[in-house]
């Protein structure tokens, strides 16, 4: 049982453990995930009612509805993912195991990103059916947009969920801090998705993917650096 103390190898070894643990918890409490998916679908219906029954308008904005419903559901998911750690003091047990803060952050952020991708996948068929917006470009590109977009929400989302987890008004503060920050990610995801749905003769999707990638690189590195300070505080 010889282990090197807290080195990068330790971090890399622990990330998949934290990821697996978070996914196991969500699987064991899957009725909650089901409720979240239902909430996302309800939002899709609400957007249609709010906008009106004009088929052309709905189709034109199908990508926007998809991402708005994922985004609004994401705060519930993100808050829940930190709630596990804080409510029973499991975070203390992890800290003493010892799990490094970086491993904890990347494991949790990956688990959250994976769940968001799954949520997008669940919401996509209803979006196509409800708004009559078939995907004209290769589906693989849409998967890529979904992965990059969800990763962009998950990294700052996990950090801000940790930052607000112990505060009295966390339900309010998490979206207040998170939503303005991920405007670029939302813009790029919506634009890219809409282009993939309506067709992309000018080849503009590439630049939006580039923006998403830049956003992800910035916040996955910055949040990983700062997470230790957040949970120590």
């Amino acid at each position: 049982m010889a282990r090197t103390p807290g080195g990068p190898a330790d971090v890399l070894r622990q990330i998949p453990m934290i990821l697996a643990k978070d996914l196991l918890i969500e699987w064991r409490a899957r009725s909650r995930a089901f409720a979240l998916a239902c909430f996302a679908l309800t939002l899709l219906l609400l957007f249609s009612f709010a906008v009106g029954a004009d088929a052309a308008t709905l189709r034109a904005h199908a990508g926007a509805y998809l991402w708005m419903s994922v985004l609004l559901s994401s705060t519930l998911l993100l808050a829940q993912s930190l709630q596990h750690e804080v409510e029973g003091g499991a975070l203390d047990t992890l800290t003493l195991a010892p799990v490094s803060p970086a491993a904890l952050f990347y494991g949790k952020a990956l688990a959250n990103a994976a769940q968001l991708v799954l949520l997008t996948a669940v919401a996509l068929p209803p979006v196509i059916a409800l708004f009559d917006a078939p995907v004209k470009e290769p589906l693989g590109l849409l998967v890529l947009v979904s992965v990059l977009g969800c990763a962009g929400v998950a990294a700052p989302g996990t950090l801000y969920a940790a930052l607000t987890a112990r505060l009295a008004s966390k339900q309010l503060l998490l979206p207040l801090l998170l939503f303005p920050l991920i405007v670029p990610c939302l813009l790029a995801s919506v634009k890219a998705t809409s282009l993939l749905m309506s067709g992309d003769p000018m080849g503009q999707v590439g630049s939006w993917l580039g923006l998403l990638l830049a956003f992800d690189v910035l916040y996955w590195s910055l949040c990983g650096l700062l997470f230790g300070r957040v949970i120590a505080a």
Partner: peptide
């Protein structure tokens, strides 16, 4: 001190990318 400063750093780091995304948009 810690959490407020972290939020400020994250917010400021986002300014250029917010600007470029809106500009392209």
């Amino acid at each position: 001190l810690n959490l407020g400063s972290i939020a400020a750093v994250l917010a400021y780091a986002g300014v250029p990318i917010v600007y470029f995304s809106v500009k392209w948009w």
